[in-house]
Write a protein that binds this DNA or RNA. Structure first.
Length: 272
DNA sequence: ACGGATGTTCGCGC
DNA sequence: CGCGCGAACATCCG
């Protein structure tokens, strides 16, 4: 459940779920979702907590509660929050749960345990080093093409690898880096250092377009990889190798860049 | 049955 | 120090 659009959806959903009732009880199994000592803090400090605000920075969810308790949650590759009535069945791979006054239960489910939850007391989550290390968030800060070009031009890595670097731009992963570069007509293996002002403008537009499209799409569809059967691929080029490019009809190809599969159109996105 | 999957982090070698 | 690469994490799906 991971890149910016899905995390933004999770933030909005959690905001609504936690708006009414305070947390009555917090429980979690001992898993590596929690770093050292985190589980005890989770169970002890979230009991009785009332939501103040939910923020998102890149792929990080930041839940702040009255009294200075903060919960940071990264969904990793397969994490998601699920709401159940207290009487309902426990969803698969529930790793932690927030029992709300009123009966609903919010489960953090994560089969592969790549996600993480941290509880912090007495500080602003936005000041955490892991949050401050993030680059600008496209929805919160917007994307400044000049700043993007400056950050890209300082590295010789492939532009797609650089776009997935959360310190460059917060929130893009394999799907949206792939989509944005197709929009921008830039080959994913091009050295980031070769990106010029005009390229950066098109990449910024490409990111905005692919994020906007995803935010306008039902979350079950953007999560089609995890939802599995029956959900159509909502993306233009991601996971579409062998199909025609939606712009020029040339067959989309795939290659491996930075260890990740990358789909691209060999005509629209010429090799470096 | 095998291979790959939306992410992050670590170790190793150059 | 930068960077590439592979592995690891644990599970599901086609």
């Amino acid at each position: 459940m991971p890149e910016l659009p899905e995390v933004e959806h999770a933030a909005r959903t959690l905001r609504a779920w936690l708006a009414g009732a305070p947390i009555a009880r917090a429980r979690a199994a001992p898993t590596r979702i929690f770093r050292s000592g985190g589980r005890a803090l989770f169970e002890r400090r979230l009991a009785g907590a009332r939501l103040e605000r939910v923020d998102r920075r890149g792929k990080m969810l930041l839940l702040s509660f009255e009294g200075g308790v903060g919960l940071l949650c990264h969904l990793g590759m397969t994490g998601k929050w699920v709401r159940r009535e207290g009487s309902g069945p426990v969803p698969p791979h529930s790793r932690a749960r927030l029992e709300l006054a009123g009966g609903a239960v919010l489960h953090y489910c994560d089969p592969r345990l790549f996600g993480r939850i941290e509880v912090h007391v007495g500080l602003d989550l936005l000041t955490l080093p892991s949050v401050r290390a993030l680059g600008p968030d496209p929805l919160v800060d917007g994307i400044d093409p000049s700043a993007l070009r400056d950050r890209l031009s300082r590295t010789g890595r492939a532009v797609k690898v650089a776009l997935m670097d959360q310190a460059v731009i917060a929130g893009a992963g394999n799907i949206y880096a792939t989509e944005a570069l197709w929009h921008a007509r830039i080959h994913p293996a091009r050295p980031a250092s070769s990106i010029r002002r005009g390229d950066a403008v098109r990449i910024a537009r490409g990111l905005e377009a692919s994020f906007a499209a995803a935010l306008a799409t039902p979350v079950e569809e953007i999560a089609y990889l995890s939802e599995g059967r029956g959900v159509d691929n909502p993306f233009l080029v991601y996971d579409r190798a062998g199909e025609p490019c939606p712009r020029c009809r040339r067959t989309i190809e795939k290659t491996t860049i930075g260890g990740r599969t990358s789909a691209f159109c060999p005509r629209c996105q010429r090799a470096p």
